[in-house]
Design a protein around this nucleic acid. Structure first.
Lengths: 202, 202
DNA sequence: CACGTTCTGAAGCGATCGCTTCAGAAGGCG
DNA sequence: CGCCTTCTGAAGCGATCGCTTCAGAACGTG
């Protein structure tokens, strides 16, 4: 990432911005946007508030960067899943990826895009809207992929791509809530398998 | 409700505790436990902080009472749904009830039990655990109902009640997240219908 | 009416909130 | 080396956090 123009001169930054961002991501992921205080964040990042503001702007912009980081890291399974050759393969990979990402023992349980700011006070209104868009975008990408599957004959011609995409998205979000509740991933995977057992075949 | 022993003498309370609790419920529902400040709450309740503390104890106990109120009000469809004669009827009523409750135009969108404290800082740890239990309890009641359906022959003998209950619970929670994102209830109901189309029949 | 009890408005508790400022330390460059 | 830019630790900004205290108002009761 290139958070600052990085002039040629001056004292170089004493920390790794990417690593600091990763640590901030974990804090937001676990505590949510409003639940994560500046003190929590900077302590986990190992830097002072001044360095945080100089590097990332403010708390909200830090969250936006952390969300981008989430897309590149924990949520990187999504584009991979969408590239699966069949619609059923796409759905299965999305659900498996969701379960894997939301239940890792070394990470916060659940999904940042869901629990980062699902209900907030005034201070979190913009971040909440950001995550609403993030989820809407995720749904749209699945819908487009399923539309392609219909066009290609991979899904029956009378399939409603939006309905099917909503099904997958709802399962993903429901799974994320279950994961945040500490439910065993094996049980969730069993459910994901069952939920795709009646997939519409061409 | 009977928050105070209600002695026979003394100056009577100048507000309706139930109504104040209803208003607090709306604030918690929309802003979450941590996002709702004492100022938000007492202003919506129309009382001073002293009255709130005298009547309800503190913020956390106020939330607990609000959750009980949520069970009696917005979430009252659950026991009704569980009393449906067939397992499919139970599932359909639970999903329809979820959609109705989480998308009412005159109420916050989404589910208090999900978005009230899904990810929190230290201050919300206990409330988060409370809602985890709340959700686990909801799942358990569905599972027990489906177990009964298996015993009664209303579901095939080889049906896994826990798996089927998890399916319904995940759909409910996913629908609640969609509702919190502002998705049209008609679209969600369409999805709920589709999700139950391959219900295991005896 | 006076008493006794309870409720309530207001003020304020220490702590923390997100955020800013600033002097000085730390490095690259001429 | 000395200059100049940038980074950083610490202190502190006003505001708000959840919560408590208290004097006085408001009522039922004897």
């Amino acid at each position: 990432m290139e958070t600052t123009p990085r002039r040629t001169t001056g004292r170089p930054r004493g920390f790794d911005a990417d690593e600091a961002l990763d640590r901030a991501l974990l804090v937001f992921w676990e505590q949510g946007y409003e639940g994560a205080s500046l003190a929590n964040l900077t302590q986990a990042m190992g830097i002072s508030t001044a360095s945080m503001y100089a590097t990332f702007g403010n708390k909200e912009q830090l969250f936006r960067k952390a969300l981008e980081r989430y897309d590149e890291g924990p949520s990187a399974y999504v584009p991979v899943a969408l590239a699966e050759p069949t619609a059923l393969g796409v759905a299965a990979a999305l659900l498996a990826g969701t379960i894997r990402t939301t239940t890792r023992p070394d990470q916060p349980h659940g999904c940042l895009g869901v629990q980062g700011a699902l209900a907030t006070g005034d201070a979190g209104r913009e971040v909440r809207a950001l995550l609403v868009d993030w989820r809407k975008n995720g749904f749209a990408r699945i819908r487009e992929r399923f539309q392609r599957a219909v066009d290609e004959g991979d899904l029956p011609a009378d399939t409603d791509p939006a309905l099917l995409a909503r099904y997958v998205a709802v399962l993903q979000q429901g799974l994320a809530v279950e994961a945040a509740s500490g439910v065993d991933p094996a049980e969730l995977q069993e459910l994901a398998d069952a939920a795709l057992r009646n997939w519409p075949l061409p």
